[in-house]
Design a protein around this nucleic acid. Structure first.
Lengths: 118, 118
DNA sequence: CGAACATATTGACAATCATCTATCTCTTGT
DNA sequence: ACAAGAGATAGATGATTGTCAATATGTTCG
């Protein structure tokens, strides 16, 4: 038997979050950006006006080439960057749609809570 | 001696990403949202029009109460939610400023790459 | 073909992390 | 004061992950 009564806000059924089309993808993208090295790699790619060669990325970091390759794969599998092969070189560029999806999710999150904040 | 010549795009010095005020905070926030359970907790809080009682969160998930408490702490330390104590209950709400910071970073990332696209 | 190079893959290892059980702290109602 | 409930903390454990060295794959040049 519950001795302490819950306040009204506790008992009222909380609002359901809006249905999320692809939660798994969202998690993968946030996780992909949730690593210091990987975020820097992403930032470097995003800062370019043209697809960036992998060699240029490796040159700029202290970690090994396989590690950079691994990070690039994670970012690519998350749908945040694309990889294009030209000859021996791989060129990476941001996928605007993938990044925008994250932004839209965040925008929706603040919008919902904005109704409450005075 | 380098036998294969790098294409122009490789040799041209890549653009520097814009200076990032607080990279560590950004990583912590992305990492906080990069877990399935935690993202759902965040979504539930964001869906409310008023701060949500922790008990209502615990009720909605299959994981234990300490696990929820852990996730709430991670989200709070990342600056994505705030915690307010009222009596015995803890109420959690989204920090719009914290979420917006993520959105602005993403918006900047797509904007930079947009100049190159098409 | 064969050498050189760019990138990816594999396997291993240490570190981080999500989760649990048990316990603790604090607040409230009697 | 005391019992009960809400939530946080501590410690342990299995899983995930970031990193590296070594190797593989594929491409270009001579």
């Amino acid at each position: 038997m519950r001795m302490i009564q819950r306040p009204a806000a506790c008992c009222a059924t909380p609002s359901e979050p809006p249905p999320l089309p692809d939660s798994e993808t969202l998690v993968a993208r946030f996780k992909a950006l949730g690593d210091a090295t990987r975020l820097e790699v992403f930032r470097l790619i995003a800062a370019q006006e043209a697809p960036l060669c992998a060699c240029d990325i490796v040159d700029r970091f202290d970690v090994s080439q396989p590690t950079i390759s691994h990070h690039l794969r994670v970012l690519r599998q998350a749908g945040l960057i694309t990889a294009t092969k030209r000859g021996v070189w791989m060129y990476y560029a941001v996928v605007p749609r993938g990044v925008a999806a994250l932004g839209q999710f965040l925008a929706g999150s603040v919008q919902e809570s904005a109704a409450a904040a005075d």
